[in-house]
């Protein structure tokens, strides 16, 4: 991952290709191999070199102030793209350049050490997500986030006893407490209850507005309408539309998604 000098561009992706080898996600035990060798001796001699081409010659530029919503059916490569931008996956070929700090969130019910209390887990989550913060800054941020979560006395009970909704409340409150240059959010509103979803949506929207640029993945079109000012539709490993939100949503729905 490289830094880019054009100050207005926060994210630039050039000719990105992501290819997964089938053996990575299809492991065989000795028993499987034996059964395959007995069942089909010839095919077992051939090496298993199937490849899955998830993103093909993918190009993208996101400028400061852009809030890009990504639409696409399951398995179209949205999460893979986000993980690449986050620096978790390394492109097979191509280049991803990010100007500034980036933060990515793919799950909102994370417990770092479930045996510890919600408050302790919130602290750990902030240390792992925002390690650059000084202690005073972190304490202020946590105090505000924990108050926002409205978990009250539950904050001092073990995280492992929390319901999914309570876990989402705590994580979303901490995650949404600090802005950055590039924010990557992959279906972050799932899990929280109806009342809290409205409350957190406002907070996340505020975070989105204060962050430099945002890449936002959601299947909820209303959320895309509220949060984004650009839409990209991905299909078959390519971006076949990038532009106006309403136009993008219309194209996405008209393709039978």
């Amino acid at each position: 991952m490289n830094s880019i000098s054009v100050s207005d561009t926060v994210l630039k992706i050039e000719k990105l290709n992501i290819v997964f080898n089938s053996y990575v996600y299809r492991r065989e035990t000795i028993r499987d191999r034996f059964v395959r060798a007995v069942g089909s001796p010839l095919s077992s001699l051939r090496s298993n070199k199937n490849q899955l081409h998830v993103l093909k010659d993918f190009n993208l530029e996101v400028k400061k102030g852009e809030r890009l919503g990504i639409l696409g059916h399951n398995g179209s490569g949205k999460t893979t793209l986000c993980r690449c931008i986050a620096g978790m996956l390394i492109p097979s070929t191509g280049r991803i350049s990010v100007n500034g700090t980036r933060r990515s969130i793919f799950n909102t019910t994370i417990g770092i050490i479930p045996e510890l209390t919600g408050r302790e887990n919130a602290y750990l989550l902030s240390v792992l997500m925002f390690p650059e913060l000084e202690n005073d800054e972190r304490n202020d941020l946590l105090e505000e986030a924990l108050e926002f979560s409205e978990l009250g006395d539950f904050l001092d009970t073990p995280y492992m006893h929390y319901s999914k909704g309570m876990q989402a409340r705590l994580c979303l409150s901490v995650i949404s407490s600090n802005e950055c240059d590039l924010l990557i959010l992959d279906e972050v509103f799932d899990g929280a209850d109806m009342f809290f979803q409205e409350k957190i949506a406002k907070r996340v929207l505020n975070l989105i507005k204060n962050s430099g640029a945002v890449v936002f993945v959601s299947h909820n079109l209303e959320q895309i309408r509220t949060a984004c000012n650009q839409v990209m539709v991905i299909d078959g490993g390519n971006a076949w539309f990038k532009g106006d939100v309403e136009e993008g949503i219309k194209l996405y729905t008209s393709r039978g998604h």
Binding site: A86, G87, R103, S104, F106, I110, I112, M129
Partner: peptide, 12 residues
């Protein structure tokens, strides 16, 4: 699950 939730160094 934790490592795939956000970017952190696995070495931690």
């Amino acid at each position: 699950e934790l490592l795939k939730s956000f970017k952190m160094s696995p070495a931690v």
